[in-house]
Amino acid sequence: MSLIDSKLLSSLDGLKIITHRPLPGRFKGDLRSLKKGSAIEFADFRDYVPGDDLRTIDWNIYARLERPYIKLFEEEEDTTIRILIDCSRSMRWGEPDKLNYARKLGGCLSYIALRNLNWVSVYGFSDGVNARFALHRGLAYIPPLLNFLEGLEPTGKTNLLGACRQIVSERSAAGLVFIISDLFGDNIDKALSLLGERKREVCVIHILSPQELEPDVLGDIRLVDSETGEKREASITPKLLNKYKKNLRTWKESLESACHKRGMNYIDIETSIPLDELLLKTFRKRGLLT
């Protein structure tokens, strides 16, 4: 497992991925779901409707209020986790490399999911979906998944909408979706709208390198886009750099707002943050892992 060192993987052994809305699963699993059902942990009440199991009526409430209420419980079941890793050319950038960081992060999340007997599928996308690791469940699929991640190479430019269209068209596209991308592309908003349907929970992990956050360019230069090869002449001054940073801040705020509007999680990360710190501290703090 050259992509991720075993020490990091072993530190992830006790972690579980949390979802924040009820997601349909295939079998009973170890993923903690917010789907209200018949498990042991009480969650809420709702009105009785004809056809409900009479055993679920809370008779104590009925005696007190003279109305039938159904008692709801949290249900633990397996669910499907899809991890979309941006493999556009812009991801092969920065120190540390964004694509490498995304592959490791994707590997860690997959490892956690597979260990907890969830279904995991990983997609490498740029102009569309370039590579796919089909849905699998169980620890046995950890080595082939990591091999798959190692094989992801940068190509093309970011087209998240195209990739999302392919994913939602799949027969069972419900579940938790992680998007790991620098989001340098158009139609991000549309892509999020497409993914953010009821049966999916989406977490956008916005990944940027330190060089993108604090560019070290100055003077009269010609900027060359690593994705498209497009060239733009510029006289970079400290004042222009300040404007760039302001632009960057506004852009990230707009992405975060777009995610929150659709009930999605948005996490912006910098590739200089160590992975173990990101997973064990940041993700846990943000309620993605427990």
């Binding site: 340098f184 592309g185 900027l223 060359v224 690593s226 994705e227 002449e233």
Partner: peptide, 23 residues
């Protein structure tokens, strides 16, 4: 006169576009 400039690769000019409209 335009200056002869050195090519400097960046990940994306996405965020620079608004700033470089005079070119």
């Amino acid at each position: 006169l335009k200056i002869r400039r050195k090519d400097t690769p960046i990940s994306s000019i996405y965020l620079w576009q608004d700033l470089l409209q005079d070119i």
